[in-house]
Amino acid sequence: MEQALRTRLADGTYPVRTLFPTRPALRSEFGVTGFVVDAVISRLIADKLIASVPSRGTYVLDPADPASRPERLGPDMTGRDRVEKVLRARMADGTYTVGTKIPALKRLSKELGVHEWKVRQAVRRLTDAGLMMSVMGQGTVVTDPRAPSTGSRHRVNVGGRQETWFIPRPGVTPASHVRDVVTQRLSDGTYPPGARLPTRSALAEEFGVSESPVRNALRQLKEQRLILNHVSQKALFAAPAPERKPSSEVLPDQASA
């Protein structure tokens, strides 16, 4: 933990004159006790890498710059500005390359010790600048403003593997987007014939919406007989392939939701 923090202080992940992550954020990120966090922070303070300012928090210092001493600190940049600066630095040094999904906003908020809505603000600014693109139910990917994405599909590097993200059409509703994506997954074999589909709650979490639009989307797919509801198993299944079961047939225990 201590070495990781020293590395971040040295490479600018935590910029000079900005707030250092809070103790709860560090405990959560590194999975250590408060005693360990306090001990590490004490050593970083002793080495004049950070300093605590009463009623304001703990700040990152530059040992070679007296102006960064806590008694001479001016107003801190907002959490949003700090997050934006960190994200821009990571894009510049290749940590987040074009076409790569960035960590979840909740994870970034814990790492950087700021509220999640500050991260959302920073991402929104970078999106407006054409440097990122957020896709409902998928996440946020780094983009190149010189080559904006076109079409409804976008190839994204997610943890070293390639995924196809489906971009919602302008003005599309959450229910329509869920329906379109699930339909595509049924078509391309992501959900093979007869396969059990994720639960409504799982889909709602994936798409970042409530269960209501998911329920509406799945109802439309059941009406189209693309998915079937199996009462005894309390689950939804991809409809069997036409060559194995005519569309007029249903599972023995099928019922509408």
Rank of each mutant, 00 (worst) to 15 (best):
V178L: 02
T127D: 13
V53L: 08
V141Y: 10
S109V: 04
P168T: 01
R153D: 00
G159S: 06
M136Y: 07
V142G: 02
T140R: 04
V119W: 12
Q121E: 14
V114R: 08
K118A: 14
I50G: 05
S52H: 13
G94Q: 08
E111I: 06
S68I: 10
V86Q: 09
V114C: 06
V156G: 03
Q121I: 07
V181T: 06
R161I: 10
L105G: 12
L126P: 04
N157Q: 10
T127K: 09
V156T: 09
T58Y: 03
S55N: 11
L87W: 15
V181F: 06
T100M: 11
Q121Y: 14
L49T: 11
R153Y: 05
L61D: 09
S176L: 01
G79V: 13
Y59N: 07
L126M: 12
V83W: 08
D62A: 13
M133A: 06
L112A: 05
D81H: 12
V119D: 05
Y96G: 01
R69E: 12
V172S: 00
V53H: 01
V123L: 00
D65E: 05
Y96N: 00
R153W: 02
A122D: 08
D144V: 07
V181Y: 05
R90S: 08
P70T: 10
S149N: 09
R169I: 00
K110T: 15
W117H: 15
A147F: 10
L112G: 06
R72H: 13
R146Q: 12
M132I: 01
D180V: 00
W117I: 15
P170K: 00
P66I: 14
K106I: 07
T97Q: 11
K106G: 13
I102K: 06
R69V: 10
A129L: 11
L112C: 05
P174V: 08
A89L: 10
V60W: 04
I167L: 08
K48F: 14
S134M: 06
P174M: 05
D128Y: 02
V114G: 04
P145N: 01
R56A: 09
R169L: 02
G159V: 11
I102R: 06
P75M: 05
G159M: 03
R120E: 10
E84Q: 14
S176C: 00
R161G: 06
V181A: 03
V142Q: 07
D144S: 02
I167G: 00
E84H: 01
H115N: 14
L126N: 09
G99D: 02
L126C: 05
V123C: 02
P70L: 07
T164N: 03
